[in-house]
């Protein structure tokens, strides 16, 4: 099994990692603060997608049991879902805080460009 095939059966992971990297690139490289916030969210979404992909098993159902059921079917891994839920909330808080700082800075300086902010600084 060559490298291409190995990558193909892990396509979800690849996509997630690609998202992560795109987000990271924007977050570190883009001068616009709003874009940075977007990059942050894209990056985190990539991680969430990755986590959710880990939890999936072929032909599995959502992990919600039926009442009275005694049979154990194949369900998706609920732990990663719980982790993702926590992760999302952390991402939301960070985003809210970052945005409020951005608004404040914009009101002070009238710009969202990091380069110009840095120059204002010194």
């Amino acid at each position: 099994m060559g490298m291409p095939l190995a990558l193909f059966v892990r396509l979800n992971y690849m996509a997630a990692i690609t998202l992560f990297l795109i987000g990271l690139h924007v977050l570190l490289g883009h001068p616009n603060l709003i874009k940075k916030v977007m990059g942050m969210n894209i990056m985190e979404t990539g991680v969430f997608l990755f986590l959710v992909s880990i939890g999936y098993a072929r032909h599995s159902a959502a992990p919600i049991m039926s009442p009275g059921g005694a049979e154990s079917g194949l369900y998706a891994n609920p732990l990663v879902s719980a982790i993702v839920l926590t992760g999302i909330v952390i991402a939301v808080s960070t985003t809210a805080y970052t945005l409020s700082l951005t608004i404040k800075l914009y009101e002070h300086c009238g710009t969202l460009d990091v380069n110009r902010l840095e120059r204002l600084r010194r």
């Binding site: 992560f20 987000g23 990271l24 977050l27 570190l28 603060l33 940075k36 942050m40 990056m43 985190e44 991680v47 990755f50 986590l51 880990i54 990663v80 982790i83 992760g87 952390i90 960070t94 805080y97 970052t98 700082l101 951005t102 404040k104 800075l105 002070h108 300086c109 902010l117 840095e118 204002l120 600084r121």
Partner: peptide, 30 residues
């Protein structure tokens, strides 16, 4: 202004660190 900017810089790098850590946790769990 300087506090805000410093906090923002810290926050952004913290977010990068947080993303890296979470991805690391995910890989370990995987």
């Amino acid at each position: 202004l300087d506090s805000m900017e410093a906090a923002l810089k810290y926050l952004i790098l913290s977010a990068v660190a947080g993303g890296c850590i979470l991805l690391g946790v995910a890989l370990l769990y995987m």
